[in-house]
Structure formats: C-alpha cells, structure tokens
Lab assay of single mutants.
Amino acid sequence: MEVRTIKVFTTVDNINLHTQVVDMSMTYGQQFGPTYLDGADVTKIKPHNSHEGKTFYVLPNDDTLRVEAFEYYHTTDPSFLGRYMSALNHTKKWKYPQVNGLTSIKWADNNCYLATALLTLQQIELKFNPPALQDAYYRARAGEAANFCALILAYCNKTVGELGDVRETMSYLFQHANLDSCKRVLNVVCKTCGQQQTTLKGVEAVMYMGTLSYEQFKKGVQIPCTCGKQATKYLVQQESPFVMMSAPPAQYELKHGTFTCASEYTGNYQCGHYKHITSKETLYCIDGALLTKSSEYKGPITDVFYKENSYTTTIK
C-alpha cells in the first residue's frame, strides 16, 4: 500500500517557510505537534488534498525554529505562539472599519479597549522592536488589523473576551517599542525636605499616572512627601515624541487643539466601556464603527496623549 502524501510549508514567522512532505494517514499533531492554519487549530486533523502548498504555523520545537521565533517575536515564552494563534482565530472574524481616516474595530468580545489602543497607536510616533509587531502594525494602518490585535493580546497575556485596560495595554506595548531616546527629568520640591531631581528613561519617561493635564504637570502637581507634608512635583525636561497622561476616570474637559487623542471610560472596574476622542479640525468621538463630532467635550476621561518633541522648564 502506497503512502499518500502532500507537500506543505511549516513556519513560526510566515517569513521562513520549511518544506514538509506530510503523510495523509496521520494527523498534523502526530507529525508536527500543535499546528495552526489561519489561526485555526488543526492539530487533530489529517492532511487533505486542499492543504497542498498551504502554510501551517507550528510551535518552535527545534533550534532553527526557536531562533526564527525569537528573532521575529522577541520572546522565548513557549506558550506565546499558541496564544497568538488562538487569538487570531477570533480577531480574523472582527470587522476593521476605516473611521475618520483611522483603522478602528467594530465592537465584539469586549474589544473596546483594543480599538482605543489601536486608534491611539496610529496617532503617536512609535516604532516597535519585534519585527512581528512592526509588520502587523503597518498592515493594521492599511486596514488589516487582525494579526496586530492578536499579537497585542498575546504580548499582554490576554484572551479574547476578557476586559482590558488601555493604560495597561499601552504599557505592555511600550515595553516592546523603541523608547531608548526618551528621557524625563522631574523635580520634587518640599518646604521641609528641599528639592530632589529624578531622571527617568524609556517607558517611565512617557507615562504618568495622577493627572490628565500635561500643562498642569509642567506647572506642578501636589504629591505627598515622605515627611508627610505636601510637596510639588513638576516637569523639568521632556525628550520624547509623545507623552501619555493618565488618571482614574473623572469628568474632564478636553479643549480642541490642546491634545492629540484621549480615552474615555464609562462604567466601573468590573464592567465598563471605552471610547476614543481625537482632536482634528474639530473633536471626534470614535466608538467602534461609530463616529460623532463636537466642538467641545466633557466626560469621564482616563488617558490623554500629547505630541511632544523637546521641553525644558522655565521655572527657576
């Protein structure tokens, strides 16, 4: 009895394709271990004539594949690729409408935090270190965002349907971005203890939790000093293409032309909904596939993004 075979390709990165001759009487799992086709788990399936010449994702289970996976995804987590594939199996079914010149995501599976993050990423200057993220990001900007969303979920250790947080998501993504040249110098002034300067680099240099107003941050924000008295913390120097200011959701007025974009969060910790506000020729609110415009805006804002380049204080 002759062994019926077909020729397929296996890959971990969709760049390096490895030619395989597979036995049609055995499952993919018996031949390769966990195997995925377009995100779908085909591990328990036997090869079919229609699979001839198709590319299958496999887990990096030998040295060659491990090197290829690390170079593309910059992670050695053995569960990463499987999590990416199972997320992709959902995100490829989502709709990605162009809204006001940006790629958004039609609401499904509690994905409003991903839509808000995706919209924000198209408006701030950011370059990702893992080629996987950078490639998928370019495709997302062009309207094909399924891979990018699935990668975000995998890097953030999230599953489809789980509630997510924009600030946490951005923080994970910033860790995989090139923020080497970003720098922030802060000064804390206390009447009792004097003053202390701190220099922050990388992710810490672009994120701040405690106030939404970048102007206020430049002037000074009140913080408790270690001595128990009130101290003032203010920005001395900022070198970065953008800054992200966050605070627990509270009524906040966004003035046209003073910011790049913002995240609105309605609801409580267990259950809520994100919308995205962007400042173009007027203010726009993007909620999944829905767009509304207004000249002014007041609502429960939790993150505001500002364009920056270089700032030095005039406070002496």
Rank of each mutant, 00 (worst) to 15 (best):
Q230T: 13
C271G: 08
D38T: 07
V185Q: 01
Y28M: 00
Q175I: 06
Q20N: 13
E2P: 11
V160D: 01
E253G: 00
P131A: 04
T266G: 04
R139T: 11
A145E: 08
K280C: 12
S294L: 15
G299V: 01
N89G: 09
E168L: 09
L291I: 14
V236A: 06
N178T: 03
E125P: 11
W107Q: 05
S263Q: 05
L186E: 14
V304K: 00
I286D: 07
Y284P: 01
S263C: 09
N111H: 07
Q195N: 12
S213A: 01
G220Q: 03
A115V: 07
P78V: 13
K219V: 09
V236S: 03
N129V: 05
K255T: 05
K46D: 11
N309M: 07
K92L: 08
G164E: 01
K229W: 01
T76V: 12
H74C: 09
H273N: 02
S86N: 14
P131C: 05
C225F: 01
N111V: 04
V8L: 10
F9S: 13
Y265H: 01
D41N: 12
D287R: 08
Y113V: 08
L114F: 08
N111P: 09
S246N: 00
G202Q: 05
A247D: 03
C149R: 05
E125K: 04
Q230A: 09
A150D: 01
V42D: 01
W94M: 00
E204V: 10
K183N: 06
Q122S: 05
D38Q: 11
Q270H: 13
M26V: 13
E68F: 02
Y36V: 07
H51F: 01
L163K: 10
A146T: 06
P248R: 07
V188S: 07
D62K: 12
F56A: 05
P34S: 10
Y172I: 15
T11D: 09
N187K: 15
L126G: 06
C193D: 08
S310T: 12
T169N: 06
G257R: 05
A115S: 09
V22R: 04
C225P: 02
N100P: 03
K46A: 13
L290Y: 12
V8D: 08
G272C: 03
L200Y: 15
Y57C: 06
K275T: 04
A132G: 10
S295C: 12
V42W: 14
I223W: 08
C227R: 03
T169W: 03
H176E: 09
D13Y: 11
E162Y: 07
D13T: 06
G164S: 06
K95A: 13
D303S: 00
V243L: 05
R184C: 01
G82E: 13
T292F: 13
G267A: 05
F174G: 03
T55L: 04
K92T: 07
L37M: 11
L65E: 08
V188M: 14
A150Q: 04
T192A: 11
M209W: 15
A40D: 13
F305N: 08
Q237A: 12
T292G: 04
L81D: 07
T260N: 06
K275V: 10
L118V: 09
L153S: 09
T260C: 13
G29P: 04
G39P: 06
M244V: 09
L126S: 02
S50V: 12
Q31T: 12
L151K: 04
N268E: 11
V21K: 12
V21A: 14
G194R: 04
T192R: 10
G228T: 01
D303Q: 04
T292C: 07
T232S: 05
R141Q: 10
E239R: 08
K158D: 08
Y284V: 11
F32S: 05
D303T: 02
K54R: 14
C182M: 05
T64I: 12
M170T: 05
P60D: 14
L151Y: 06
V22L: 11
M245R: 01
V304W: 00
M1I: 10
V160N: 02
L37N: 11
L121F: 08
E162V: 00
T260A: 10
Y137I: 09
P248N: 03
Y297W: 09
H256N: 07
Y138G: 14
A205N: 03
T226R: 14
A154K: 00
T192Y: 09
Y265I: 02
V185N: 01
Q195P: 13
V206A: 00
A142I: 12
F174Q: 00
G228I: 00
I315K: 15
G210D: 01
L163R: 15
P300C: 13
